[in-house]
Design a protein around this nucleic acid. Sequence first.
DNA 1: TTGTAAGCGTTATCAA
DNA 2: TTGATAACGCTTACAA
Lengths: 346, 346
Amino acid sequence: MANITLKQLAKMLGISVSSVSKALNDSHEISEETKIKVRKLAKQEGYRPNMFGKSLKTGRTNTVAVIIPYLANPFQSQILEGAHQAAYANDYKLIFIQSREDQEIERDLLHSLIDQRIDGIIISPSANSDPTFLRAINEEVPIVLIDRIDFDVETHKIGVDNERGAFDATEHLIASGRRDILVLNGKGLGVTQKRTSGYQKALLANYIPFRSEYIVEIDYQQSKQEMANELRQIINEKLQMMPDKIGLLGNTDVLTVTALAVLADLGIDVPNQVAVIGFSNTEAAEAMNPSLSTVVQPAIEMGRLGIEKLIELIKCKNRNQLNPTITTLAPIMALRKSTKVLPASS
Amino acid sequence: MANITLKQLAKMLGISVSSVSKALNDSHEISEETKIKVRKLAKQEGYRPNMFGKSLKTGRTNTVAVIIPYLANPFQSQILEGAHQAAYANDYKLIFIQSREDQEIERDLLHSLIDQRIDGIIISPSANSDPTFLRAINEEVPIVLIDRIDFDVETHKIGVDNERGAFDATEHLIASGRRDILVLNGKGLGVTQKRTSGYQKALLANYIPFRSEYIVEIDYQQSKQEMANELRQIINEKLQMMPDKIGLLGNTDVLTVTALAVLADLGIDVPNQVAVIGFSNTEAAEAMNPSLSTVVQPAIEMGRLGIEKLIELIKCKNRNQLNPTITTLAPIMALRKSTKVLPASS
DNA sequence: TTGTAAGCGTTATCAA
DNA sequence: TTGATAACGCTTACAA
């Protein structure tokens, strides 16, 4: 059932292989008449060009790849969504791969993509990725960094303004009447620093003194049960020291959601006793009880932009002449019941 | 920065291209001595074979593809997880694609995979897929059907025992003391029939009369808000007719989760007034309030099995001699708080 | 055990 | 406007 080839078409038409090739590529050196004849037969025979022959000759594949740590992560899969749209619109094929946050796997994948002569790569590097290695890859094939942009590689980068997200979230908690705001950080997470700094700036802007005891760091990769226990203990302890009008800013999705469950379990009323807001791109926020206010990252937009920047790089002959840009997109606040405003009387 | 080629290696070693090729493929017609020399230089020069040259010649790619409707769907992305494991273990490259539940996109994708001379395909067809088309594809390249196996294609199929899942879930609700059990079905969903039948059989087995009013069908693709409204109305109405000991079986994740939110909003106590169980593969079930009991589909196992069956097909020369198998895996019950047993006194 | 040469399907160069 | 030919990198008869 193999496909028909150029050669076969040529024989059927009684013209040369090269003429058929040129006709199908709409070359100016072929007559309209011939082109029409060729296209008709090609269509009729269901001719589909062999990618290997083509790529072997041209060295290009018209394919780009997106590497993210986990496909199953809702935020990251939304990046894919955006990338898909943009790639489709620009007639590029797109493949998705996951590195599972593993530097070794990532390395293999990148090599095998280069083997496949992929035209370009969008990557959200795994946390422990080696910038030297990324730079080396960047020499061989254009890459664009997305989301995790704190790697020293000379290329376009697309990220989220995490400081801004935390700033806005904190301001919203304050606006809803809270002055004592607990922050839950995921242990060893890259975004922690920026988000904490956004939190601090928001306090500052509202003349609320910063208290370092209000910032806690939790291992979010342990089992659900263990995490819930740890959180319960911490929340209990912290609530002792927080006099009133309490807010909670969850900087990691799992932590926020678990905290919500723990609060419910402790019989603490959200939002009346404690207001909660978290970073999250899942629709599940809507279905929580109470529904969870979130800072949403513009993941689809990021994916789309990533592809556009990448194609720009691919099409640009003198890559070293292009100066790298860093784009940071503002997150969006999705306000729901978990941060309802306190009655003015309080 | 192009890669070094066989020809270059040959020149450096002063031997012929074919000898180098054979040496690297560990052919028996090459002396150990030469092999060692060749391998050493190849390694030293970082030789990586050009896939196009290779595939152009051999017609194979050592790559298989998985097509699912949505990458972002947790259940489906777990299938990928399993497929990944098995493909890796068998030294196959794997690519993931999503059809977005769109027959047109699916068709394009399948064609372009065949263009790429992919060795085999695992597919969970979009709902409106045309079996005739799938059969045609199956003539060109081996395919394995996964999850959505109700298509008339002569090949291996891996599915979940949905009837069994609904049966077990219903039995569990009954065992927890419920006799009036409401069923939420997603409109137009393929699994509805099997799951409803499992529900009915469980009732029968427990001598509970079946009442068709207890089965409702809801459009789960409308907006969250609309769906919540519709659900609220339905639940209110149905609860009127349900005397006591109420259970709720959600056959679609979104519906179940939204129902949980609606129940909370109505001030109905879960699990004491209404016990809830749903089909779901997300970890969010754990974090719901109350935590949600679920029927979990063995998605990872399915993915793994799918790849194994596919490789079997690929390696089998006379495909038409192989008789197709249908494997249905049993789902697993994950029991949490939303179905806690009623106190015996009731 | 090694080498020669043909060919996979395509495009590009150059000549007709 | 068309065609012959070489070349991309690799494998594989077949010859040496």
